[in-house]
Design a protein around this nucleic acid. Structure first.
Lengths: 165, 165
DNA sequence: ACGGAATGGTTGCCGCTGCAACCAAATTAG
DNA sequence: CTAATTTGGTTGCAGCGGCAACCATTCCGT
């Protein structure tokens, strides 16, 4: 998918290609695999965010942040999940605009049921092709990069200055 | 986006999270950035495949393979690109079903015009956050993994046996 | 206390994507 | 030679995602 971009070095170009290819493939592949348990990868991540939250409850905004998604997207996904009975929506006591999204028992059931497929996909797509040492190396290098990734966009229009507080 | 999946080790889990987060963020960010030059990231990749092909010509199937996309998707994208005058479609001499997709001068212009934005996004999102050494390491580890990635799915339904001829 | 800004969220519209179904040409089997 | 399969590609439909516009509530400055 593009072999030599602009002023990038050989290694930079090579790495960037790997990343973009992974981006193209991973989500569709996960969606395909999770379809057999009735979830998209994004729904999986949304429910997982709830599962890990105290009281299995979050506000939509928080769910959006934890899944690196824009708010409107999460709003719609929660609506669908609610209709399917996987989460409930109740008004927040402290803020009349917000609502608390809570994982239902059924939602937990569906999510837990999806765990093996997800882990299996992770292994088959990536992890099985790496040695334990490589995994360690990759994880330690990538973790900080990912932490710095700001979904609200370091770019968007050249005004990005992500390095300043 | 999920903190500990099934039976994965700490490092595996950590790495997998990094990959999924990257997958969530990269394509939308690239789409947003390339929008200012009138292309999606996928269109960019499609045109780039043509640019790098001998005669700047490929069949739709070949474009799909090189961009890791399913055929119907590429079919539709080519239709749009053709309508915008960025590619032409002419019947193949050797196979009456196939057509040859060729990058037009205008298509090349648009693509070249997009290169800086794309490279800039690559740097800002990822590359600038890594040392040259880290880039070398990542590139060398990831390249073979990416090569092995089969978009036609090592999973899909557990029948995967990608290692046998 | 009041007007303006920021926050939390929803909605509409449009474009893109995936899948399944389909068609036509080409290849293989019998 | 003909029938069956495979290959190359297109299309319809339905669902998802992004963005911009919008509403309501809360926060802030004065």
């Amino acid at each position: 998918m593009s072999a030599r971009v602009d002023g990038l070095s050989e290694a930079e170009s090579q790495l960037w290609i790997s990343f973009t290819v992974l981006s193209q493939i991973l989500t569709p592949a996960l969606d395909a695999r999770l379809r057999e348990v009735g979830l998209t990868h994004f729904e999986y991540g949304s429910l997982m965010a709830l599962l890990e939250a105290p009281g299995r409850t979050l506000r939509i905004r928080e769910m959006a942040e934890r899944t690196y998604a824009p708010l409107p997207r999460m709003s719609k996904v929660v609506t669908r999940l609610e209709q399917r009975g996987l989460v409930t929506r109740s008004p927040s006591g402290s803020d009349a605009r917000a609502s608390e999204i809570k994982l239902t028992r059924e939602g937990r059931r569906v999510l837990v049921n999806a765990l093996p497929a997800h882990a299996d996909a992770a292994r088959r797509l990536i992890l099985d092709k790496l040695t334990a040492e490589q995994i360690e190396t990759l994880a330690s290098i990538l973790a900080p990069v990912v932490l710095e990734l700001d979904p609200t966009g370091p770019l968007s229009h050249g005004s990005g200055d992500p390095a300043s507080p």
